[in-house]
Design a protein around this nucleic acid. Structure first.
Lengths: 243, 243
DNA sequence: CTGCATTTGTGCGTATGTATT
DNA sequence: CAATACATACGCACAAATGCA
């Protein structure tokens, strides 16, 4: 976490910690840029660089003439809990089983190169799985696509034997620790190939959840997953509270 | 698109257009910061502000000592919800316009009575709106259904004149403060009625976001909203960090 | 309403560090 | 080693929005 050399990175880390600690509460005003300059002994430019980082993370919102409001406390519990609770939701009370569909080498297209922040044409390993409910009748719940650097291509075999999550295996087997996950949820409809595996008609509504795993907030991702979840089985619940 | 006053905004617009036009292809290098300074007649700082915008849009990737690579032609995420706190939820929605479709009295069916925790048959006010993008051409983005107690039925009029969010108006006009929001996200497809208002074919994928607003976690909700968002325009982003 | 202080936004200049070629 | 290109960091000035006297 604190491997950030630059000053603005250190300021980001400090402020994020303080927002989490409760030194600042959601709804509170952050100190003014001038105060932060004095507090950290840096120029306004450096302070603004840090604040822009917080803006990108969705923690603050700046308003000209007023100041910066804290609009979010990045979850106080470790992200793992949050992710696991999402996985639990996907499972709807039961554990999920994985079945390998394919594992192959692909060249990055526009979408993939954008996700990883690399040039088009770079090689990646693509793995497809289907997740089934374990309990009761085995119902297919989600189609999972995974992309990693070719050096981790043995991940496919690990996934079949190991019940752990992809991120956990990446850490245990390859030492790739995840410190930051970006998640996007979109709506889509099942294409023919996925629909078959999920035992639903093509065109059915589905939730698509993309996750980009990286070591730190600023680093490029080392793992990308897309879960295509049956719209009739999966819903994502959250609860927001003031304070 | 070109409603950007500041210089860096104009540079972003120009470069985005050129990337889309094909003047630059994915995999190409962008001109160096120095070249862009000369080309646009601005300082390096302004060029870098523009480039950071492109980075945030996921169009380019800068590499120290080499240059900036084009990694995508378009940013698919036009409307992104970044949801991590109540404040963020309530503050969002400033960049969208509302148009009233209908306001009527309804009796609670099974679904509605369950959501509010009341008996079937109780009377509620149901309000339908369509949200359009304010900037550029007015594109319909989401169909919004709102349910409140009949004593707040004047909410419909307020919503037309006031740019604020539903929760803010509930607080300002009726003193109903929101301290807890429960949210469920599901995938659905557009029915005929909603599809028409959103200018899309029926059956198109959509994100359905249901929110129940209450004063405290334990209290019964005083407001229920369902947003049916065009799947091609809306995505929900979150960011998780360890420690 | 006017004026003023505060606060963020935009923009310029300069210098130095670091990775790549 | 040298040249190139992006990254970090300092400084200054003025504009625009806000809130208050």
């Amino acid at each position: 976490m604190s491997a950030n050399q630059p000053k603005y990175g250190q300021i980001i880390d400090k402020l994020v910690r303080e927002i989490r600690d409760g030194t600042y509460q959601t709804g509170d005003m952050l100190p003014t840029e001038h105060r932060l300059m004095e507090a950290f002994g840096v120029s306004r430019h450096t302070v603004r660089q840090a604040l822009q980082g917080l803006k990108q993370m969705g923690l603050i919102q700046a308003q000209q003439g007023k100041g910066s409001v804290i609009i979010a406390k990045a979850n106080p519990s470790a992200y793992v809990d949050m992710i696991q609770s999402i996985e639990a939701l996907i499972a709807k009370g039961g554990d999920l089983d994985r079945r390998l569909i394919l594992s192959r080498s692909v060249e990055a297209d526009d979408e993939l190169s954008q996700a990883f922040g690399t040039k088009k044409g770079r090689e990646f390993t693509e793995i497809h799985l289907v997740r089934h409910s374990k309990q009761g009748p085995s119902v297919p719940v989600a189609y999972l696509k995974i992309w990693v650097d070719p050096e981790f291509s043995s991940l496919a075999r690990e996934l079949e034997n190991d019940g752990r999550t992809v991120a956990e295996i990446m850490k245990l087997r390859f030492g790739m620790e995840t410190g930051s996950i970006r998640q996007s949820i979109t709506a889509t409809s099942l294409n023919q190939e996925v629909a078959e595996k999920l035992d639903r008609p093509a065109g059915d509504p589905a939730l698509q959840i993309e996750r980009l795993y990286s070591k730190t907030t600023l680093a490029l991702p080392h793992l990308r997953t897309i879960s295509i979840c049956r719209g009739d089985l999966v819903q994502i619940d959250s609860h927001f509270q003031s304070q």
